[in-house]
Amino acid sequence: MKILVCDDDEALVSMIRFKLSRENVGDIFIATDGKEAKRLLQEHEFDLIITDIHMPYHSGLEIVSFVRQEMKKEIPIIILSAEGLELTVLRAFDMGANDFISKPFSPAELTIRVKRLLNLK
């Protein structure tokens, strides 16, 4: 299983990586900005994407539309963002995100949602 985590907060990304690798859900790839995320998406086949909304160069929503519209892929996407406005959440789902987690979040909850989307126990 390959998982892509995009967030410009390096401390947080490192923690998510630590948590997910301990749970043995798969290989974790990290992008700290939108450009890198797009590059990695083109180079690898991912099974799941976790992305923040606000990142340099391309926003998380742009990543969602890139995956859905341009790559035409059904990879599960979790949005992990502090922008918990109803409008933003609806927009994210509208564009094809599978799940929305508001920051601050619990790492344990994130793991459960990741596993569910990957159909793991």
């Binding site: 401390a11 920051k103 601050p104 344990a108």
Partner: peptide, 15 residues
């Protein structure tokens, strides 16, 4: 600074 930054993203027991 690092603790405060993490605090913004984490909730519950981690926080």
């Amino acid at each position: 600074n690092l603790l405060i930054k993490l605090k913004k993203s984490l909730s519950g027991t981690s926080s």
